[in-house]
């Protein structure tokens, strides 16, 4: 036997023994605080009520709503297709199974957006992906989708288009019937034709 082989083998064995005493780090999939803060300051994790309404109406199969309110509140009213995961149950195996489904966008919502944001932070810290927060929560949902307010006549065309879309969404989510009355809001502008009085002259 060569002496070098023995030394080499001994070194490897020693290193292997050293590995046993290394402290286990169970949270190695965790997102560190600074990275989490950056993602939070981006504010890209918010989804607007209009976007959500459109995705539900289109039947987007990747939408998975998560209601983070208490079970009692959720029993009274939930958005269509939502699953109730109260804050306290966020880390249970059952919730993990819900939040790790493939090909889903998880959208947390609550009455406002504080609780949902907190649920987002805890789940994101645990390394879960494709998480979103409904901006404004259910209060905003009622104000913009279920009971939209008509825009002022002076507002730009986009506001009217958005209002029309919201009325449609409201009809979809509540089953309401909407009477659309024609009403003149703007005076018709007369476009009178200008008649040319002079003969066409010239050329070169």
């Amino acid at each position: 036997m060569n002496k070098t082989y023995v030394i080499l083998a001994l070194v490897l064995v020693l290193l292997g023994i050293g590995l046993i005493f290394l402290k286990a780090n169970p949270n190695n999939t965790e997102i560190p605080p600074d990275k989490l803060l950056n993602e939070l300051n981006d504010n890209t994790h918010y989804i607007s009520t209009d976007d959500l309404a459109q995705r539900i109406i289109e039947g987007d199969p990747s939408v998975q709503l998560i209601d983070v309110r208490t079970a009692k509140d959720a029993a009274g009213f939930m958005l269509p297709g939502a699953i109730n995961v109260p804050m306290g149950d966020l880390l249970t195996e059952e919730s993990k199974a819900v939040l790790t489904q493939d090909g889903k966008d998880f959208i947390f919502y609550c009455n406002g957006d504080i609780l949902a944001n907190q649920a987002w932070i805890i789940s994101r810290r645990a390394g879960l992906a494709r998480l979103h927060v409904l901006k404004g929560g259910l209060n905003c949902w009622v104000e913009t989708i279920l009971q939209p307010k008509p825009p002022a006549p002076t507002e730009p065309q986009e506001a009217f288009d958005l209002y029309q879309a919201r009325l449609g969404a409201s009809q979809f989510f509540t089953g309401a019937t909407i009477e659309v009355k024609k009403s003149e809001t703007k005076e018709n502008v007369d476009l009178t034709k200008k008649t040319k009085t002079r003969k066409v002259e010239g050329g070169c």
């Binding site: 609780l115 209060n139 279920l146």
Partner: peptide, 29 residues
């Protein structure tokens, strides 16, 4: 902001009234 401002279930139940009671849809000419 976390206090529910509306009774969501009630809004859903009485939806047909709540929407039509608002001003009719105004379309820009």
């Amino acid at each position: 902001v976390e206090t529910p401002k509306y009774n969501y279930a009630a809004i859903k139940a009485s939806s047909s009234q709540s929407v039509t009671s608002g001003t009719p849809a105004e379309k820009k000419e």
